[in-house]
Design a protein around this nucleic acid. Structure first.
Length: 967
RNA sequence: GGGCGUGUAGCUCAGCGGGAGAGCACUCGCUUCACACGCGAGGGGUCACUGGUUCAAUCCCAGUCAUGCCCACCA
């Protein structure tokens, strides 16, 4: 087979991919050795709406490196792929598509129609990212691809929900949650991004209530003191000053709170003040209460309490039994439905405090939202409230202020805390065993410092709001009876039976209703299913076992669970890793009933940034698209770059020049193999690496052994960058730069056993290189594997061939070849420095060489001529006159350069060399003369310094002699 | 406010107790019979700063200054 000087990744990659696919090379267990252990990884399922970005490329390259390495080692490997249904993201995509088509909006369709539409979209466009992963070379078992909404996974979700509900760990309740007014759903704390924005803080006067007996406004002496207790301000006030960043929530205030120790407000605690918004005759009065929450030193020290629209206020309201007024609708507009939301238990109390009687008629009298504000968007309402208060002269001041504002991570709109009915998971209980697993080292994070992040979050975990007011997702398996009794079951039939049983055993009206038509009613007449769906991460948290068939007991579950390592980015430690730990620990047990964690290792990798360290974003225009890079440089180059830069604990700043550099590496490998082909590299049945005779071959096998050990060690420790760099250095700097060069005289020489050994060793080492590089650069290595005849007859594709093991350590050969390399390197430097033409053939004599060196000289004569560009080098006792002299390995090499020699330059060069040696010796002497050093430093270190000194001294003598000869 | 990082050659980064490294960029020289996506040779660094521990510190500790990220309820 003839090879071009460069290769074309594009053609090759699709061809190779096809071969892998058609031979099922990635199938679970492909290439395993009989009786081998399993090695399994579950892919972090990308969103079905996703397309491959650099983060995916890094994440999946690293997984693929591990998986290919383990597969070649003979493990029974499963890399489980799949995608996530991504509730909000997918619903968003499909709704946008509907809008683009000018068709119905979601709201105009039935739920069933819409969901059908989403599935259709999924079938048509949902596979994009999977194909992109294939282009990267990800060796997942694609035949086992799963989707979080698959039947099997949905079954797992139902089972988990029902069990956790029955255990009391899932419950429904009215709580303050993060409400996304754009998507009109609750979201979890994690889906909220707090961003600092420019805002304002308004200071308003809340007038004290008119005393009904006197008909006058109440007043009090407001006194401020400095730190020493001196009065700095004293005035009579008929109001309390309130600071707020959100005036639009004022209509929902339930109280004003001050700190119990705040003397300024002590005279008015317990009194009422008025919310200064809306028609005067209908303004609501609220009490001034005390609570630890207000900070007397911040603002005025008085805080308005809006329990239904602020998380802090909610806590204060609960403590003080302050009513919660839900002021807004699902879109974040002030409600227009006329009826204020008041918790039943608090209704009477509120009315009483508002000065009214607790009867239904009075509710309208304190109607929460005045007519002129009804239906206003919250930001519009804010402007109106501020303007109206200002017009009334009740605004004290407005400050510009940076405020932290919550935004929906997908919708990018301001999140509104809202009082709604939601489902929650008691995460605190589930977190405990998940914490213990990491504390007790049964699951470990790499790098370890991420454990602290995990601990901090898990130790302070809050209930997880798992319900979403969406249509796309796992619908919550809960049904409500006519009296709102909840029936949770895996299917409607069970829920219905439960309901029938429940009501038949009750004494209420529904018993009679049922007795009337027990076999003749539609289920919907009795129970209605909760319309909400579960948070996408609920199903993702089951991924490590739901993809393997759980809750059924499958052979795959037995074989591949616990998975080995989870490879992921730190940004989803909370979203996903922690939750998988919670669910895995709760549901998965071994035969002894012991907890089995979903994975024993969590490898956390960095973020990929642009070359200046900026986060890649469309708006900055600095996004590098992995697919574009793959087109330009090949998948192997992209993969190798990401691997080589994946140092632990550091973000990857990706520059195209690096990718180009590793593309060049691929070309280099290509040409090395081409060279070997041209020169008849051939596997010989008689070849045994331990039996080679030539030092150069012994040496390259020694170096290959070292490189392999380094790669294995690095991969064991997830030091991907070290592994890549060891493979790179061996291949290029050792094999190409030296081994192939040193072989050239032999390969161009006469046939014979030496040449045969060279050809066989060359073939053997190329085999080795292709194997050791395969996890990093699967395409080109597979291609070259096919292009070369190897030692195993190429019965298998490289992907399922064996990972090399080699442990040859030949010190003598290493010394021989390193001497040769040093001699050639030094002469090259000299030629360059002395401006001697690179192709000028020099002759030289080696003076003072010991026996071993003389033997080397003899043996390497042809190499020296070819690679070192010497006419000849002979051993001699007598230095040549008028030569340039070099000290190499304890001997002096005199190079005859004829008229080329410039005596002054030569003297200067040697003098500089002397100076360098003097410096080295002085440095060592300083150390050795330090008695503390010789006394306290380890003996081998001291001995090492002495040896170095001896070496420098010997070299100095030689250089001195050379210098003398010039005079 | 708490936590986790990072500051090493012009750029991007390895190294992390005993003689400062790589890739790219730069300079010089090479149509050397695999490769110019190449070959050979070079220049370039008080390893952020200040103290401390140590026989020895770029590396360990403390502080300072920069810089990045995550978490958090100051209205």
């Amino acid at each position: 087979m003839t090879m071009e000087t460069t290769f074309s990744p594009a053609d090759m990659e699709s061809r190779i991919s096809g071969l892998w696919e058609s031979t099922s090379a990635f199938a679970a267990g492909a290439g395993r050795k009989p009786g081998s252990d399993s090695f399994s990884i579950v892919i972090p399922p990308p969103n079905v709406t996703g397309s491959l970005h650099m983060g995916h490329a890094l994440n999946n390259t690293l997984q693929d490196v591990l998986v290919r390495w383990k597969r070649m080692q003979g493990f029974d490997v499963l890399w489980q792929p799949g995608t996530d249904h991504a509730g909000i993201a997918t619903q968003m995509v499909v709704e946008r598509q509907l809008a683009d088509e000018g068709n119905l909006r979601r709201q105009d369709m039935t739920r069933a129609q819409f969901i059908e539409r989403v599935w259709k979209w999924k079938e048509e466009s949902g596979g994009t990212i999977i194909n992109q992963l294939k282009r990267l070379g990800a060796s997942c078992d694609w035949s086992r691809e799963r989707f979080t909404m698959d039947e099997g996974l949905s079954k797992a979700v139902l089972k988990v929900f029902v069990e956790l509900y029955n255990e009391g760990l899932i419950y429904r309740g009215k709580r303050l949650v993060n409400w996304d007014p754009h998507f009109q759903t609750a979201i979890s704390d994690l889906e909220v991004e707090n961003i600092e924005v420019d805002g304002h803080m308004w200071h308003f006067k809340y007038p004290l209530a008119v005393n009904p007996e006197t008909g006058k406004a109440a007043t009090y002496e407001y006194v401020e003191k400095d730190e020493e207790g001196n009065v700095t301000l004293s005035e009579t006030r008929d109001y309390i000053s309130i600071a707020t960043t959100r005036p639009e929530t004022m209509l929902g205030d339930g109280a004003v709170a001050v700190h119990p120790g705040d003397e300024r407000y002590a005279p008015i605690v317990g009194k009422l003040c008025e919310i200064p918004v809306g028609p005067k005759e209908h303004r609501r009065l609220i009490p001034i209460i005390t609570d630890e929450y207000p900070d007397p030193d911040f603002g005025s020290g008085a805080v308005k309490i809006t329990g239904a629209h602020d998380f802090n206020d909610y806590q204060v309201a609960k403590r003080g039994q302050i009513p919660l007024f839900r002021l807004m609708d699902e879109k974040g507009a002030l409600r227009a439905d006329g009826e204020p939301y008041v918790l039943e238990a608090d209704k009477a109390r509120n009315l009483r405090e508002a000065g009214g009687e607790p009867d239904e008629n009075h509710v309208d009298a304190i109607n929460l939202v005045p007519d002129e504000y009804r239906g206003l968007d919250r930001f519009e309402a804010r402007k109106r409230v501020v303007a109206d208060i200002d017009a009334e002269g009740l605004m004290i001041i407005v400050e510009d202020k940076k405020v932290m504002q919550p935004f929906g991570d997908r919708s990018k709109v301001v999140i509104e805390p809202m009082l709604t009915d939601q489902w929650f998971l008691d995460a605190k209980v589930l977190a405990e065993p998940a914490l213990a697993s990491v504390k007790e080292d049964r699951t470990r994070f790499v790098p370890k410092n991420w454990e602290k992040t995990y601990f901090d979050w898990m130790e302070n975990i809050e209930p997880w709001c798992i319900s979403r007011q969406l249509w796309w997702g796992h619908q919550i398996p809960a049904w409500y009876g006519p009296d709102d009794h909840i029936f949770v079951a895996e299917d409607e039939e069970t829920a219905l039976n439960d309901a029938i049983q429940h009501y038949m055993a009750s004494e209420g009206p529904w018993k009679a209703w049922l007795e009337d038509r027990i076999d003749n009613f539609h289920p919907e007449e009795l129970i209605k299913r909760d319309p909400d769906v579960l948070d996408t991460w609920f199903s993702s948290s089951l991924w490590p076992f739901s993809t393997l068939g759980w809750p059924d007991g499958t052979p795959e579950l037995d074989r591949y669970y616990q998975t080995d390592v989870l490879v992921t980015g730190f940004d989803i430690i909370f979203f996903w890793v922690a939750r998988m730990m919670m669910m895995g620990n709760h549901f998965m047990r071994d035969e002894h009933g012991e907890v089995v964690e979903p994975f024993h290792t969590v490898y956390i990798h960095a973020l990929v940034r642009d070359e200046h360290g900026q986060k890649m974003s469309k708006s900055k225009g600095n996004v590098l698209d992995p697919l574009v890079l793959i087109d330009e440089y090949g998948a192997d180059a992209v993969r190798f770059t990401l691997t080589a830069m994946a140092a632990q604990g550091r973000d990857i700043k990706l520059a195209k020049s690096r990718i180009a550099g590793y593309r060049n590496f691929a070309t280099k490998l290509w040409n090395a193999v081409r060279f070997a082909q041209i020169n008849g590299a051939a596997a010989s049945p008689d070849f045994h690496p331990h039996a080679v005779k030539e030092p150069v071959n012994q040496w390259v096998l020694t170096e290959a052994s070292r490189a392999l050990a380094e790669i294995d060690g690095a991969l064991e420790g997830y030091r991907f960058n070290d592994a890549a760099s060891a493979a790179y250095k061996f291949t290029w700097n050792l094999f190409c730069d030296w081994y192939l060069e040193l072989l050239k005289p032999t390969l161009n020489g006469d046939d014979g056993p030496t040449k045969d050994e060279a050809r066989a060793t060359m073939a053997y080492v190329i085999d080795l290189i292709l194997r050791m590089l395969h996890p990093f650069m699967p395409f080109i290595t597979e291609e070259l594997w096919a292009a070369t005849g190897g030692f195993d007859g190429r019965e298998q594709m490289l992907v399922v061939s064996q990972w090399p093991t080699l442990a040859i350590e030949n010190e003598d050969a290493a010394r021989d070849i390193n001497w040769l390399i040093e001699l050639i390197t030094q002469t090259r430097s000299l030629r360059s420095e002395m401006n001697i033409a690179p192709n000028a053939k020099l002759s030289g004599v080696l003076v003072g060489a010991d026996g071993a060196t003389q033997t080397r000289l003899q043996a390497q004569q042809s190499v020296l001529q070819r690679v070192g560009r010497f006419k000849a080098i002979t051993a001699s006792d007598m230095p040549t006159e008028g030569s340039i002299q070099l000290v190499v390995g304890g001997a002096t090499l005199c190079l005859n350069v004829g008229e080329l020699i410039d005596l002054d330059a030569e003297r200067a060069r040697l003098a500089k060399e002397m100076g360098r040696l003097d410096d080295e010796i002085a440095r060592i002497d300083k150390k050795l003369s330090n008695q503390k050093f010789t006394a306290r430093a380890p003996a081998d270190v001291v001995e090492g310094e002495r040896e170095k000194r001896t070496g420098y001294e010997a070299e100095k003598t030689k250089v001195g002699e050379a210098l003398q000869r010039l005079n």
